[in-house]
């Protein structure tokens, strides 16, 4: 690996299906993405050390891993935990960056990345929904969202509603807020998520999970009303800054 290359590992397999556009967004931001099948990583026993040495970013793309059966992201989380035993917090501490988008976010939650008191389930309306949302970065430690303003991004999910335990909801919420983990909120309410949470980060800000798809909003012509916007065709999509932030953070981490 040359000193200037920033490699990114993009997972695929078992029904993950946004790996190509996620890799492309990372490439546009300056990474050298590698799409790798989870089975190959497990077979090769890619250790946390190898992950940290080899890759500046680990991306868990969107999709329908294991058909969303049982719970969305659940079986993927089990497979990663049992097959690879990566400690993502350790990876982050060593300078790694993690992004989980949509199904990847669900898997991160089910792996316990954001604590045992956060879960995610079916949208309140009981339906899958593909709609563009406005999502605003909050005051948080997230390196991925640093300096970003309100973004217009597509959301495409049936299970995007963050839930907390009802009994100690207040204390869970204040803990997340205290640690700067609530990093992205919807302007509207597309799915009934607690506190309109669209994304969470870990306390270091290096791990980001979010339901909307920044990788599907890197081009101006992806926006649902670009034909009516001045220079809609030439503009960049709002999602691009997420990946550019990561490239900046990755360079700083060396």
């Amino acid at each position: 690996m040359s000193a200037n290359t920033l490699r990114a590992l993009v997972l695929t397999g078992d029904g993950i299906n946004c790996e190509v556009e996620t890799a492309e967004a990372l490439r546009l931001a300056g990474f050298e993405p590698e799409i790798r099948h989870l089975n190959d990583l497990i077979r090769e026993k890619l250790t946390l050390d190898a992950l940290s040495l080899g890759y500046a970013v680990l991306a868990l793309p969107g999709g329908f891993s294991f058909g969303d059966d049982l719970e969305s992201g659940k079986v993927l989380a089990l497979k990663i935990r049992h097959g690879l035993s990566w400690d993502l917090h350790e990876y982050a501490d060593r300078g790694g960056l993690v992004i989980g988008i949509c199904n990847g976010f669900q898997a991160l939650i089910k792996m316990g990345t954001f604590g045992k008191d956060v879960s995610i389930t079916h949208n309140a309306q009981g339906r899958f929904v593909n709609t563009w949302v406005r999502a605003t970065p909050q005051r948080s430690r997230s390196l991925w969202l640093k300096g970003a303003g309100t973004m217009e991004l597509p959301a495409r999910h049936g299970e995007g509603r963050i839930v907390f335990p009802v009994k100690n909801r207040a204390s869970v919420l204040s803990k997340l807020e205290r640690q700067g983990m609530i990093c992205l909120r919807y302007e509207g309410d597309p799915n009934g998520s607690e506190e309109r949470i669209a994304g969470l980060c870990d306390p270091t800000g290096r791990i980001l999970g979010l339901m909307p798809h920044p990788e599907a909003a890197v081009r101006g012509t992806a926006h649902p009303s670009w034909t009516g916007q001045p220079d809609g065709a030439g503009a960049r999509g709002d999602g691009m800054q997420v990946f550019e932030n990561a490239a900046r953070a990755a360079r700083e981490a060396r």
Binding site: A25, F128, V129, N130, A222
Partner: peptide, 14 residues
């Protein structure tokens, strides 16, 4: 339409 994912693969223009 909104219950179908019409944007996956990141290729959507119209």
């Amino acid at each position: 339409i909104r219950q179908y994912d019409h944007e996956v693969q990141g290729t959507s223009v119209v």
